[in-house]
């Protein structure tokens, strides 16, 4: 973040210029929201509602409820707008709120505390990043491409709470591993390990469903 700001200095009071990177534009937008500008909030809402809805829906696969929770996230954003710290990355701040609302809802639903974090730091798995982000084999790509919505939802539902959280956040929030770790109060190594295991479990689950049909 500091490195980024060194290269893209701008005045907090000025309006965003053309060609600013997305992060700087989000920050500028959030500063206007913090001042209570409804127009800026409308832009923020339009920009993030899709990714946040996608994230929440995979936790709570009921469209009406997921929409209610997604709306609650944005109401909380407006209520808490003055607590936004200009030095923080907007998406990290926003996704922390989304995560908290989703987890509150899950806790309310199950009335059980979350399981403690899995004991994974990723140090025992070599080349984690390569295993997560390397191009898929064509068979795996086809598997995901052709997976039915119900199969996908069922397999995502079988992941552990933390695997699902880390995976969905990586997919929809456009955050780095370090930023996800900050949001989920853990370290980047643990996030990589969670996502790697989520990938392996998901592909195995889809393969089993495929084999049965």
């Amino acid at each position: 973040m500091r490195h980024f700001l060194r290269h893209f200095p701008f005045n907090e009071e000025t309006s965003p210029g053309v060609g600013l990177p997305r992060e700087a534009m989000d920050r500028e937008l959030m500063l206007r929201v913090r001042k209570g500008e409804r127009r800026a909030f409308e832009e923020l809402f339009a920009r993030f509602k899709g990714p946040i809805m996608s994230y929440i829906y995979r936790f709570i696969p009921d469209r009406d409820r997921a929409e209610d929770i997604c709306q609650e996230v944005f109401l909380r954003v407006w209520r808490a707008r003055e607590s936004y710290e200009p030095r923080a990355k907007v998406s990290t701040w926003l996704w922390t709120l989304a995560h908290n609302v989703a987890i509150d809802e899950l806790r309310r639903k199950t009335e059980q505390p979350l399981q403690p974090n899995e004991d994974e730091d990723g140090s025992r798995i070599p080349d984690l990043l390569g295993r997560i982000e390397s191009p898929l084999a064509s068979a795996e790509e086809q598997l995901i491409e052709n997976a039915r919505e119900s199969s996908l939802q069922s397999c995502i539902g079988k992941l552990s709470e933390h695997q699902r959280d880390a995976l969905l956040m990586k997919i929809h929030a456009e955050l780095s591993y370090e930023e996800i770790a900050e949001t989920l109060k853990t370290n980047a190594g643990a996030i990589k390990a969670l996502i790697y295991r989520a990938k392996a479990a998901l592909i195995l689950c889809l393969e089993r469903i495929e084999a049965r049909t």
């Binding site: 509602k49 899709g50 809805m53 996608s54 829906y57 995979r58 469209r63 997921a66 929409e67 997604c70 709306q71 997560i132 982000e133 390397s134 191009p135 898929l136 795996e140 790509e141 995901i144 491409e145 997976a147 996908l152 995502i156 995976l167 969905l168 990586k170 997919i171 929809h172 996502i195 990938k199 998901l202 592909i203």
Partner: peptide
């Protein structure tokens, strides 16, 4: 396409027409 991109495309859910 890597795993994250493929899954991201597949799991995206748009809010309903009445959401806004």
């Amino acid at each position: 396409m890597n795993f994250l991109e493929a899954l991201g495309k597949k799991t995206r859910v748009e809010p309903g027409a009445d959401f806004d």
